[in-house]
Structure formats: C-alpha cells, structure tokens
Nucleic acid binder design. Structure first.
Lengths: 143, 143
DNA sequence: ATGCAATTGCAAATCGTTTGCAATTAACGA
DNA sequence: TCGTTAATTGCAAACGATTTGCAATTGCAT
C-alpha cells in the first residue's frame, strides 16, 4: 500500500527521493507536521519540536520548512499580518477562510471559482501559475 | 463639483475631515499617490517623494501610509514575497492579477466570484469582513 | 568502522516596518 | 501678524520574522 504523503514516513520517502538526509531534527519536525491538524507557524512548530526533543533550533525548523516547500511537500500561507503558517500539501486543493477573531483556518473548495479565475486570467492574456484566495470573516452570531 | 478621492486635493479634504494636519511632506506624498498609475511600495513612494523634495523620510512615508489606510483612503496589498504596495482606495472594488515575471499588477473584477464567496462563507457560518484574491500568472506566449 | 559532504546550533545579519525622542512646524486664536 | 501648543517630523535605534556564516556534528555510502 502506498504511504499517504502527509505521514511521517510519507515525508521521509519524499525527502529520500529528493536526495536529502533524514536527520534527527528532521524526523521530529516531520512527525509534528504529520499530525498537525491546524496550520502552525514556524515558532509553533519549534515549540512542539522542543517538546519532543530539546536542542532543536528554530533555524532548523525554518530550513526544513523551506526544504519541504521546495519539494512540494508542504504549503506556506502568509495570512494577513502574522508569520507564515504551514500545512501538508497532501490532499486536494483548497482555499482558506480565516476567523479574524480566533485565527482559526477553515478550508473550502469551489470548482466554480477556480473556473472563473481561469476564464479571467485567460481573458487578460495570462496563464495562472498559482493563486491565493482568502476570506477573512467573523462567525455569524446565531440570532 | 466633488473632488475625486484619489486626487491630491481629494486626499487633503479627507485628511482635514479626519482632523489631521496637512504638512509639507504629506502634501508631497499625497501628490505622488494621486498620480501613481501603478501600485508602488513604501520605498518607491519614498524615492519619488525625495525627487520632489529632499528631506522627506521613509518613516514619514510609512506613517502617512498607515494614516491613509486608517481613514480608508488607500489600500495596502501584501503580495507574495515583496513589501506592501499601495493604491488609492477610490474606484470600485477589484482583485489583482500579478505578473510573476514583471511584478505588474492588473486589476479585475468578478461579481460572480464575489457572490460565490458570500455563499461559501454563509454556508460555513461566517460573515466576510474582507477577502483577498490574487492570481499569480505569466503572460501567455502568443503562438 | 571511516571519511566526507550534508546538516546542525548558534549568533549575527537581513528585510520591511515601527517607534522613542528631541527638534520643527501647522493651525488656532489673540 | 505673532505666539502658543500640540501634532508632526527626521533620525537612529528597536522590532519581528526569517535567513545566513561558520565551526562543530552527523548521516550514510563505502
């Protein structure tokens, strides 16, 4: 059976294929990413990593994030204001709704919007390389 | 006749109404914003300002941008990677297509996409406070 | 086991932006 | 017109997020 991408071992396989070493700190970080249900930033990943094994440095977290981003294993999101937040690239494409009160991130997907984007870009003479669609909202008070 | 918002004097009126002083540096910066056809960043505005009158500081550019953003006279865009870029808030709402090769910014608007965003947010129990839709693309090679 | 290049931790550097402070100045009324 | 005074300025230093140089460490192929 094929290992899902967003799995500790899935990441390791991807790294091996990219020809990089599986080091102690990396293994810890990969483990954290693998079972992060949220969209943590570098500092948060660092905190969780130190929890697992002290001595890991923030630099290494950043370096590993860049590495993983480079091989397409994770996505980096620069939501308004704050630092970059990361998430496993596994799974289908989606956009984000950010709760401006809590910082919570909700994923959503709309084929229709994707199509419209394509149409717009084409009409302007462009090919979309990637896009960013973020909705910043507030939970509707149930009345 | 009413002064269009994105005009040097239009800005001054807005500032006066906000109860802030029209100073020499501010007048210069407002003039630059008024006839900026592009989406310059703080450093670029600073360069243009010094051109008009040396002695203006980058701090003042930043402070003025924040002020104008605060009263809703300009919009700040944090496109990928680079520094914040600004544009007069005057005119109707639009989103952006960024040419990843040149940095050029093309504005576009889609009522349909706006509607879909509303629907999505509503379905998730949220009210949209604002959103960010950016298409990053490359000019299609005419073949 | 051994060797060497990849990787690490640390501290210092970087980039964009903000801020403290003393000096300047716009805008008000006399 | 001239002060008076609080808002604004320029400067330099502080800032937060991220990157980097470097010497010490460590995977991993032999």
């Amino acid at each position: 059976m094929t290992e899902p991408a967003a799995t500790a071992t899935g990441y390791e396989i991807a790294l091996r294929e990219a020809g990089v070493r599986i080091t102690r700190p990396r293994r810890v970080i990969l483990g954290i990413l693998a079972d992060a249900g949220d969209h943590p930033d570098a500092m948060e990943i660092f905190r969780r990593a130190v929890e697992v094994e002290r001595g890991i440095s923030l630099s290494t977290v950043y370096r590993t994030m860049k590495l993983l981003e480079g091989i397409g294993a994770i996505h980096r999101h620069a939501f308004e204001g704050g630092p970059s937040r990361f998430e496993p690239a596994a799974g289908d494409h989606h956009d984000h709704l950010i709760d401006i009160d809590t910082g919570d991130v909700i994923e959503f997907q709309s084929d229709r919007i994707e199509e419209l984007q394509q149409e717009i870009a084409r009409a302007l003479g462009y090919d979309i390389v990637h896009h960013r669609l973020e909705l910043y909202g507030r939970k509707r008070r149930k009345q």
